[in-house]
Design a protein around this nucleic acid. Structure first.
Lengths: 216, 216
DNA sequence: TCTGCCATAGGGCAGTTGCCTTATTTAGGA
DNA sequence: TCCTAAATAAGGCAACTGCCCTATGGCAGA
């Protein structure tokens, strides 16, 4: 039994790259390719005998989120896996809301992509671990579905995020130092750096800003 | 670098089974095993130099959800993967809310378990596809699970709520005093009373608890 | 009336926090 | 290879915080 797949991406080179990744697997058949959601819908009207759609998000005419919504409306049986370069919260959340059955990143290797497709058809959801973590955070903290303009890039180091997480539990410098096996001086330094990056001046502000930006 | 793991399960045979699954991998070291959350917490107090806890849910004395909450409160840096036989929505939702970093089923094969642990330590979340699908559904259709027993009446006075609101903005005692035309001593007193009523010990905890209980 | 509760206010003390400076080591990018 | 960023660590200081004590006046309910 072959798996009938469609690929939707506005970059034809990337379509080709994905095709190539899937060419290793004999049970995969590429039934359609499209450069945007509109083209996909047209082709589906001709033939919607399809198992999975691999959908890019950023596309002209009809983007991946809108396309997902419309495809799911008309053909709910077709599984849709987002396959995109971006993993920001908003895209993930909107894609899930639109009905996506999975969310993978374009950098994925052939085996994982194939497994993701199989798993999705088997009644699961395809997701790489970092996306999974983001969905968990969204579930814990569902209040942050806004901030469209508030796109200031905040880049904390891994260690800084770790410290921030502990701060948010109300732990003191010394307690955090013990937990992370660091000197209190180091923890203080990290916190100073965090404050500078977030442009805040206290634990509370830092934690609140971090939560609003879904850093923690 | 070895991965320090703890296993918590009320069934000692299953602990043994999990140990055996992980025995194939030389970089895994089982630092603790425990039959319930209480035992785990005791052992963590002696030595919390640990990377991952594999946690069952159904346990006597202190179940996996409660244990997760408590461990995450004290040692947020330790990753917790639920490893259970049951995958009902409520368990999953509660585990995520409690701070779990992953959710796997006991039927998992050794490689996937090992990969899940590695992925979790690598900043992702371990999750098998069927669990992933359930989290997506929960995100789409947030069932508002209100704790029925958690109806502890918290009654703050009008003034106390006022102070709490200012606290939540990150203002200091003196700033709040100025805003409300009070002496700093009075503000401190109010805050002391607030702490007692909410049973917390810092600004951050107070604000977080107040937000959870819709006081502010 | 008396007993709580609330709001107000002050003092003290130990510990924490925010902010400053300096310094070494390591890992990754140009 | 050099250079930057990150992570590590230490010392100092003023201010803030959490927690303890006491004290006064008002107001509501038993």
């Amino acid at each position: 039994m072959s798996l009938k797949v469609a690929i939707v991406d506005d970059n034809s080179f990337l379509i080709h790259a994905i095709k190539e990744k899937l060419s290793f697997f004999e049970d995969i058949v590429i039934k359609h390719t499209a450069l945007n959601g509109s083209e996909l819908l047209t082709k589906l009207e001709e033939n919607h005998n399809l198992d999975v759609i691999l959908m890019d998000i950023e596309m002209p005419v009809l983007n991946g989120i809108e396309s997902t919504q419309m495809v799911k409306q008309k053909y709910p049986q077709i599984k849709i896996i987002m396959l995109t370069a971006f993993d920001n919260d908003e895209n993930i959340f909107n894609a899930i809301k639109a009905g996506a059955d999975g969310y993978l990143l374009k950098e994925i290797n052939p085996e994982d992509l194939y497994n993701g497709i199989k798993e999705t058809l088997n009644g699961g959801a395809a997701m790489n671990p970092s996306i999974a973590l983001k969905t968990l955070k969204l579930l814990r903290n569902p209040i942050d579905i806004q901030n469209p303009c508030d796109k200031e890039e905040i880049s904390l180091s891994k260690r800084e995020v770790e410290v921030l997480e502990q701060l948010s539990k109300g732990l003191s410098y010394t307690a955090i130092a013990e937990n992370l096996f660091l000197s209190p001086s180091t923890v203080r330094k990290h916190i100073e750096n965090i404050y500078k990056k977030l442009q805040v001046h206290s634990k509370m502000e830092a934690v609140q800003k971090a939560k609003n930006h879904n850093i923690i």
